[in-house]
């Protein structure tokens, strides 16, 4: 990737050489944009086959499918937001803590009191507001304060969870707002509302990343910030917007988690940062920025949750599952490095 091309062109150029590898065997196929997703689909299908072979009807069952999707929904929404930040050349370690803080703030006695007097939607708005505000602070620290993203969000991780503990006094806050749980527990045409929300967020994320100026700018900023700046993009403002978007996703994930557990707690969202980053990375988004795929992220989330489900169904040990997860991440990253070297050449 040359230094002085305009940002958007830089992005196009980065994508272009990937296609040239077509026909160079499996790695060439995997290197094409469609091929990358094919690899993920194959991995997911293999996992499902494994599930069917080992657990049979227990795996291939509508209820089990919905169980997988419900589990994927919360972390999936966070991962979609994370795809934007990583594509834009950043990283956010504070997502789990933001989910916790949003869940706590949205379920305090005060919030619930207002919600009871007005409408349960107050809980949703509170969580989104808190999540968005956290993202805004992260973005501002990184873009205008010039703090490295890793450090800035590490600080937020500690601070947000600490604040959540202070607000909740480390107690679990139970939600007693009529209508709230009922709305999120319901199903639309047999599909749980939580899963519908995840699907909507994924589709909206795909459109935003691939079909809008905002998405183009995200690729540009992540691929080469200096080139993007020269091309007239306000890189700092765009960075703030990316982190705010992720914050909003965390707020939404918090609402979904509150609905699923009927509680807000400072312990919610433990290690979500790692789950989300892992899903994004095996999906094919480059950790160094400039290339990202929402479809890949969704597959990444589904691969991990399906893996977890297959292991659960087969009564397999804690340790074996952790090893399998680690192996999948390593394979995905090794593959990605090869691709990066080719496209960089």
């Amino acid at each position: 990737m040359s230094e002085d091309t305009a940002a958007v062109a830089a992005h196009e150029q980065q994508r272009a050489p990937v296609g040239k590898d077509n026909g160079r065997g499996i790695s060439g196929l995997l290197a094409s944009p469609a091929g990358r997703n094919t690899g993920l689909v194959v991995a997911l299908v293999l996992l499902c086959l494994g599930g069917v072979v080992t657990a049979g009807d227990r795996f291939a069952d509508v209820d089990n499918l919905l169980t997988i999707l419900r589990l994927a929904a919360v972390i999936g929404v966070v991962s979609v937001g994370m795809t934007f930040v990583i594509t834009g050349g950043g990283i956010d370690l504070s997502v789990g803590a933001i989910v916790a803080l949003s869940s706590v703030w949205a379920t305090t006695l005060a919030t619930q009191g207002i919600a009871n007097d007005t409408h349960w939607i107050v809980i949703v708005f509170t969580a989104l507001l808190v999540g968005g505000a956290c993202g805004l602070v992260n973005g501002a620290l990184i873009a205008y304060g010039r703090v490295v993203a890793f450090i800035a969000t590490l600080a937020s991780l500690a601070a947000a969870r600490g604040l959540a503990e202070i607000i909740s006094n480390r107690k679990t806050q139970i939600v007693n707002v009529p209508g709230f749980a009922a709305f999120f527990d319901a199903s639309v045409l047999g599909v749980p509302v939580l899963v519908v929300i995840f699907a909507a967020v994924a589709v909206a994320g795909w459109v935003l990343l691939n079909r809008t100026t905002f998405g183009r700018r995200t690729f540009a900023v992540g691929g080469n910030p200096e080139a993007a700046r020269l091309a007239g993009i306000d890189v700092r403002r765009h960075t703030v917007m990316l982190y705010t978007l992720l914050g909003l996703c965390c707020g939404l994930a918090a609402v979904m988690l509150v609905a699923r557990t009927t509680t807000g707690s400072a312990t919610h969202g433990g290690l979500y940062e790692l789950d989300a980053i892992a899903a994004v990375v095996i999906g094919g988004t480059l950790l160094s920025g400039g290339r990202g795929t929402i479809a890949g992220t969704v597959f990444g989330v589904l691969i991990f949750t399906t893996l977890s489900n297959v292991f659960t169904l087969n009564n397999l040990s804690i340790s074996a599952q952790a090893v399998a997860k680690g192996a999948i991440i390593v394979v995905a990253v090794l593959l990605q490095q090869r691709l990066a070297r080719r496209s960089g050449a």
Binding site: R58, D61, D63, N64, T67, I68, R70, L71, V74, I75, L257, R260, T261, T263, S265, T267, H268, G270, L271, T305, S308, N309, F311, T312, L313, N315, S317, I318, Q321
Partner: peptide, 23 residues
């Protein structure tokens, strides 16, 4: 006895119980 992975993530623990219900 079917033992599932011990977890401190309530979201995951809920899905484990859902799997037991499905089963």
């Amino acid at each position: 006895l079917r033992v599932v992975e011990g977890t401190n993530d309530v979201n995951l623990q809920i899905s484990q119980v859902e799997t037991f219900i499905n089963d």
